[in-house]
Amino acid sequence: MNTTTPAQNSLLIDYLKKHEGMEGAHLTCTLACEGGGKNYSTHRKRFLNLLKDLEKDKAVLEAYPESLQTVVELCRSLATDGERWSGDYEGVCIHVSEQGENLINLRRPPIEFTRVEDRFYYRPAAGALAARREMLALSLSFKQPELYIFDGESAEVFGEIDLPESVYAFSEEGALDASQHAHIRRSRDTGTPQTVNQGFSPTQSPRELNEPIFLRELSHALRDLKESQELPLLVVGDENIVGEFVKVYDHPFGEIDTEMGMQSHPKASDIARICSDLCAEKQRQEMLEIKKELKQAEAGRMESFSDNVKEIYEAAEQGRVASCAVASDENAWCRFDEKKGFQSADPEKDSDAVEALDWIFVKTWLNGGKAIAIPSKDIPGVKKVAALYRW
């Protein structure tokens, strides 16, 4: 698979904007799910058992007397929706509030926990959310090409475009057809008038002669589409036709990604899987770039580098963090007192305690930076957080 410039993480930012600041109980639950959708009944039972324990938690009941029951009911509804639990994954991160529920599939098993607080925890789903990208996907063949739109999770046929139906459709519309270049001339040998062809080789079929027109018309249709200005494009199909298409088509949004060797007319689910894998690879490349930048900055002792939780927390609030890595397997609980400033806190005893690493992750993205969540052993200096400042 050929990969190019990463798309914007607009879906991740939209997700954070939508859910930050909502009132009421917010449940975050992470589960390791061996076998993914194949073992849905087992995962469902575990989730329902966690809900039973939650309903007996006096502290949670006292903190959210009005909204907790709504959240639990939504959780039960989610647990019984087998379609939502289908697919290939090794874990899930579940976010449920009064406003609705979200089940996020994870490619690797997460550290398990269940918490109900005033906000969600996003670090367990950081990679999955960052890999959600919108894109166009062209299933390319010489007969009935289809354009799909991928929303980060599923793909469906994009109905607002007229693509040429077939390479054969141009034979009656002025395409390079053998009959159009035939004329009468006299044979030197017999003097008998004969019909002969010029500009047409017997080894070339009408389809081969129509291919350039087919690809040109396909390019025009795509280039005129508003979404082509805004979304990346993946072209899926046989190596020969995909190779010819990318020679003649310049995508307005940028370079084109390709997936060759595919059979003709794949299902929407196949397109979604290919898009999802491509997005995950782009997210992986972004993560490697951020890790590389941070390690180089630490090694070079750059002034713009920091691994201090308090400093980075405040910088993220101010929008000064360009990129950062936060530990996915550690916590840094704190509270911010107007007189004493940033202090460590015990979440079991302090209702105002904030998990600083998750907050850094959210604020960095919302203020125009990039953040990743990785094991602490992979963070420069084996710290809980590392960041590069804009100034």
Results as ranks from 00 to 15, higher is better:
Glu217Phe: 05
Leu136Met: 10
Gly237Pro: 08
Glu303Thr: 06
Val71Pro: 07
Ile372His: 03
Tyr313Glu: 01
Ser376Thr: 09
Ser41Asp: 08
Asn367Asp: 03
Gly87Ser: 06
Glu66Val: 13
Thr4Met: 09
Ser219Tyr: 10
Leu136Ile: 03
Asp57Thr: 12
Gln283Leu: 00
Asp177Phe: 03
Leu209Gln: 11
Phe336Asp: 05
Ser264Gly: 09
Gln99Trp: 05
Gln229Trp: 06
Arg76Asp: 05
Phe120Thr: 02
Cys279Ser: 15
Ala325Ser: 10
Pro347Gln: 00
Val96Ser: 11
Trp359Met: 08
Leu27Asn: 10
Glu66Phe: 02
Gly127Arg: 13
Leu50Tyr: 14
Cys75Trp: 05
Pro110Thr: 08
Pro124Tyr: 09
Ala327Gly: 13
Glu330Trp: 05
Phe170Pro: 04
Val167Asn: 05
Ala356Leu: 08
Glu34Ala: 05
Arg46Ser: 02
Asp189Trp: 04
Asp350Val: 04
Trp333Gly: 04
Thr28Met: 00
Ala182Leu: 11
Arg390Thr: 10
Asn39Trp: 04
Asp238Tyr: 01
Ile111Ala: 01
Glu172Asp: 14
Glu244Asn: 15
Lys267Glu: 15
Lys340Met: 05
Phe142Lys: 10
Gln318Cys: 04
Ala155Gln: 01
Ala59Gln: 14
Lys267Trp: 04
Lys45Val: 05
Leu218Met: 14
Ser276Cys: 08
Ile256Val: 15
Asp337Gln: 05
Gln194Ser: 06
Leu234Asn: 00
Asp238Thr: 08
Ala387Gln: 04
Glu20Tyr: 04
Arg390Trp: 03
Phe336Arg: 06
Gln296Arg: 14
Ala130Leu: 09
Asp329Met: 09
Thr114His: 01
Ala125Pro: 02
Leu50Asp: 13
Ser166Val: 01
Arg185Gly: 01
Phe245Ile: 11
Glu281Ile: 06
Met287Cys: 08
Ser269Gly: 01
Ala126Ser: 15
Leu16Val: 00
Ser276Arg: 15
Val248Tyr: 04
Asp257Gln: 12
Glu311Ala: 03
Lys38Leu: 13
Thr30Trp: 03
Glu156Trp: 00
Glu289Pro: 00
Cys324Tyr: 06
Asp177Pro: 00
Ile256Gln: 08
Val246Gln: 02
Ala182Ser: 12
Val236Ile: 15
Leu138Asn: 07
Thr258Tyr: 07
Cys75Lys: 07
Ile213Tyr: 11
Tyr168Gly: 01
Glu348Lys: 03
Ser201Ala: 11
Met287His: 02
Gly319Ile: 11
Pro252Thr: 01
Cys33Thr: 15
Pro109Asp: 01
Glu73Ala: 09
Asn2Leu: 14
Ala131Ile: 09
Asp350Ser: 00
Leu78Gly: 07
